[in-house]
Design a protein around this nucleic acid. Sequence first.
DNA 1: TTGAAAGCGCTACCAA
DNA 2: TTGGTAGCGCTTTCAA
Lengths: 338, 338
Amino acid sequence: MELRSSRPRTTIVTLSQQAGVSASTVSRALKGDPRISLSVRERIARLAVDAGYMPNALARTLSSGRSGLLGLVLGPSSNPFYAMLLEEVVAQSAERGLRFLILHAGSGPIEDRTTEALLQYQMDGCLITSADMSSRAAEICAANGVPVVMINRVPRLHASSVSCDNAEGGASIAQHLLESGHRRAAVIHTGGASSNGIDRERGFIERFVTAGGCITSTFDGRSVYEGGHAAGYEIAAMAPERRPDCVFAVSDVIAMGVVDALRKAGLTVPTDISVAGFDSIPEAARAAYDITSFEQPIVAMVRRGLDLLVDRIAEPALPDEAIILRGRLIPRGSTRRG
Amino acid sequence: MELRSSRPRTTIVTLSQQAGVSASTVSRALKGDPRISLSVRERIARLAVDAGYMPNALARTLSSGRSGLLGLVLGPSSNPFYAMLLEEVVAQSAERGLRFLILHAGSGPIEDRTTEALLQYQMDGCLITSADMSSRAAEICAANGVPVVMINRVPRLHASSVSCDNAEGGASIAQHLLESGHRRAAVIHTGGASSNGIDRERGFIERFVTAGGCITSTFDGRSVYEGGHAAGYEIAAMAPERRPDCVFAVSDVIAMGVVDALRKAGLTVPTDISVAGFDSIPEAARAAYDITSFEQPIVAMVRRGLDLLVDRIAEPALPDEAIILRGRLIPRGSTRRG
DNA sequence: TTGAAAGCGCTACCAA
DNA sequence: TTGGTAGCGCTTTCAA
């Protein structure tokens, strides 16, 4: 029964005995209830510090119904964008006193088993930052009345979301390329059903074509460097007169693959061909790549995402909400100017 | 009191009423206790499934003393090595049914507040995968009898650890460079107190110098790309006759910065100068960099780390243990041959 | 201003 | 093979 070998932890009862008051008084005193006289409050606070008292969050959950625990589903952190998202989420949740349980990290699907296991921990809510593969988890959460918020993904059902204006982002890139004289574009999409990728592609194509450009070809970049690399090779292999004069990849990791492949095939970026990406991750911004991109406002996205979640935990009846934040075009050296 | 708006969750009591048995019987039946007759066990199992019953892990904790929760401290995931470690930890812990609470992610120090808050969740153990900045957290865990295991870091106190043979890794790199005719090396370390970085540097220098090479200079790479980049520039700016013929960076991210800086300064890698890193992250292995490196056996490291942790949770009296795994030199194109 | 008591959902001990 | 009972540590009425 007594599993922890060290001395039994100080509990609220220990304290109440030491203080010569009841447990309820200690409970109230510790959370600063003004009904408890100041002197008693102070005395108990002192005792608690001396004893190194630490309330048992799990026991509290049982009686209060709130665990203070949130679930986190993270996309493949091999994409630095998700790694950034992770750090931002952790940093901001530390400030707010929110705790995250890791539900999943990576590109694979989330097993029902995992989701259910986590539900057993009475998560108050769930944050999903993943472009794909998380519908089922969201479903399970929704079915159990656990609020779900998605960052960087527009949900198909039962969830609120925060994303940047992907279509507008794609359009900005198109605009930028058009204005600098490009007319023939290749697009590298993700292949998957990610709403992000689709919106970016759609926004790009619409604007580019409307303004008189043409799309010469599209490729499946599978959201990874290697996918972009393969597409880049194919593009480089095209006859010069049939080759596009610019490439739009729906994410920076893909764009990095494209750039490397084009260079290896002997083409110069942007002289021979321009390349643009999306996300504006630091890796793609470095001088070696210097890729024109569309920056997602990560800090604000995370802030609003946590807002949505906290609000819905406090008031479960709130309707789903979809927040779209404006991103920012960042022209860099990978796209030829005027 | 009733916070969740939806129907009250099915509990063990609900089930026991439906089944017409006691709660204890349900509890035992559900965990397959052979003392309960098979027929009853099956009937209850069916009922549980029908009702969508999900045990409350928190309540279980309260009575059993085990939360099934582990704490995770993650290094800066801007370094892909940590991102890989994260995914591997999550994947393997899913298989083992372990749950992780995020204690920290990033390069900053962990605030005591955070550690303490997490302790309130009665974590059974804590996994630290970070080269630095986590001593205090480990202390607090140790003081509360929570087993700590560190991956990729050798602890100074109260913790078990798994790491690869960093000194041997540095030595292998040195050996490789020596055998291919290099004699003048620059070393880029992390500057910090990370035992990893220090061991790698020490192992490298010892072997290199012993075999007749010389260390021309050392730089502080601060564990980041930019640090390597700055060092690379300084190296490129040296007079050719004073310049080293090879560079050893204690991590691949640093090495990538070095390569980019050298190239930008007009030098060719490896013709003019060779560069080697450590970790063998995919980003540095790509054709654009193709950096010779020393691979850490991540899968095995995580496996053994979880082993250590699980063992110590079951048996807290086990002594601390330090496991060192062998890594593997991977020669690539960034170092000149013979 | 404080205390007593009930109960959150589950486990584990002791009986039967 | 099963049931009853007593907690685990905390919160929260209801009384005093």
